[in-house]
Amino acid sequence: MTDTAIEADALAKRFGRLGRATWALRDCSFRLPAGRVCAVVGPNGAGKSTLLALAAGLTAPTGGTVTVLGTTPGAARARVGFVAQDKPLYPQLSIAETLRMGADLNPGHWDAAAAQRVVAGGDLDPKKRIRSLSGGQRTRVALALALGKRPELLLMDEPMADLDPLARHELMGVLMAQAAEHGTTIVMSSHVVAELEDSCDHLLLIGEGRVRLAGEIDELLEGHARVSAPAQSDLSPHTVIESRTTGRQVSALVRPVGTLRADWQGGTPSLEELVLSYLRNPEAPALTPAKSEEFSA
């Protein structure tokens, strides 16, 4: 057992051939401790899906390394669950057959009861074919298949996008119970920050193929401050992520170095504010574990 769920070192993935190649992920380094519920956040096309596919052993990196549960993604396959963004399932199978297939393809660690509980929560007839299900119902079956595997690490790409608020709430509850009961590390990507704030304790913010922020959400929030100061104030030596001058006031989001001046009004930003500030300002310096250690040193 390792205490690290995912560790990426200078991970890079390029698509396409020379000349027309685009980097989906570039120089991506972070460490996700085991047992966390991690949100992978970023705009569309930021590289979230690529990162999850690399960790799931579905695609090989162009450069760098990724270690999953202490080994290669390929070797960790049996211990990792994956739910792809479009929730692919075999349309010709029934729900019951899909779960039986899960049992046959995951010998030794299939939890039939857990899988059935997820399906039963949606009041679905097990005899129903996958092709006749709605998007939300398919998501439920895909989650059942992934949870039935009893994974140590569960990777989910936009898992909740198709679900109505009730189902979203219920399935998030199922996931959190799984994480609490079995110590499962959960990694889910989303571009809706609000839906992750309550359930996630770790954040990985990706923008333009690079890691912009990585760490425990509490620590990240505490490491930043919202300040309101007179327009001419010198904000240095604090690292300014974003600043906006309105009239005689400048409002900014900063990474304080030392203590902030007492006459500046401030507060802790919300997760959404933090994320948006970083996304709006691609030039703002990234904050990843390696760098935060430098800071504390």
Partner: peptide, 14 residues
């Protein structure tokens, strides 16, 4: 095309 290959590749077999 449908992504079911990826579904199969993330079960307990290579």
């Amino acid at each position: 095309e449908n992504g079911t290959a990826r579904l199969a590749w993330t079960q307990g077999l290579s």
